[in-house]
């Protein structure tokens, strides 16, 4: 966490980003005050009194109000999460103030350590649009029972899924299978969607459980074991 803080404080021009210790309550509070004074400026100067009294016991309350006023999503979070959000917010404001300046900033590309190697893997050099490739894919599809599609890469993906699920495709060639196989491929493509749906259902169930669940046992009801 502290590394992230250091980067963001440096970006914002904090006078001492390297020395900042987020675990120190006092330093933490000064950084919050510095952010409001120098970067965020959400309050008028006279409204910042609560945050300015770093040694006061009321500071935490002022900090909470401050976060609520900023509509921080992590008011309930840990102090580090809270600070992180404030820093991100400040960076966002800083960027918005100087869009033109930062837009042209370029990250220096680190030089690649190794020279470019020409790949020896023939798959890397495949021409997906070549007729030979298309013909090859058609042939595998016929064996695996995958239906036609304009994009051979799409068909290949379907074949891959079939191979992963049934390492030895052993599909008797009958008219029934002519219909079955393409529908199976369709189903494969939707499995992920189904999983997502089921996960959402589970999340909803868990949310309901938070309200209704109260599992109890009462061993006096019956002797268990011996």
């Amino acid at each position: 966490m502290s590394n992230i803080f250091k980067l963001k404080l440096t970006a914002l021009g904090h006078p001492n980003p390297d020395g900042f210790n987020c675990e120190d309550e006092k330093e933490y509070r000064s950084v919050v005050l510095w952010l409001e004074d120098q970067k965020i400026r959400h309050y008028k100067i006279e409204e910042r009194e609560g945050l300015r009294n770093i040694d006061s016991e009321q500071w935490k309350k002022a900090y909470n109000t401050y976060q609520t006023d900023l509509v921080s999503p992590v008011v309930q979070g840990t102090p580090n999460e809270q600070l992180n959000w404030l820093l991100c917010y400040a960076v966002r404001l800083e960027y918005a103030d100087n869009v033109t300046k930062y837009k042209n900033a370029k990250v220096e590309e680190p030089k690649k350590a190794a020279p470019n190697v020409v790949s020896s893997n023939p798959l890397d050099n495949l021409d997906f649009s070549s007729p030979a490739f298309k013909a090859g894919v058609e042939r595998i599809c016929a064996i695996a029972g995958v239906g036609p599609h304009v994009d051979p890469k799409f068909q290949l993906a379907a074949v891959a899924k079939i191979l992963k699920s049934a390492p030895h495709p052993d599909h008797p060639k009958s008219e029934v299978n002519m219909v079955h196989q393409p529908t199976d491929v369709q189903k494969l493509l939707f499995i992920q969607d189904l999983r997502d749906l089921q996960t959402k259902i589970n999340e909803a169930l868990v949310a309901v459980q938070c309200v209704t669940a109260d599992p109890r046992t009462d061993t006096t009801l019956g002797r268990v074991g011996r």
Partner: peptide
């Protein structure tokens, strides 16, 4: 599930 004896999964 409602009473919390099992998990959603």
């Amino acid at each position: 599930l409602r009473e919390g004896y099992v998990w959603a999964e």
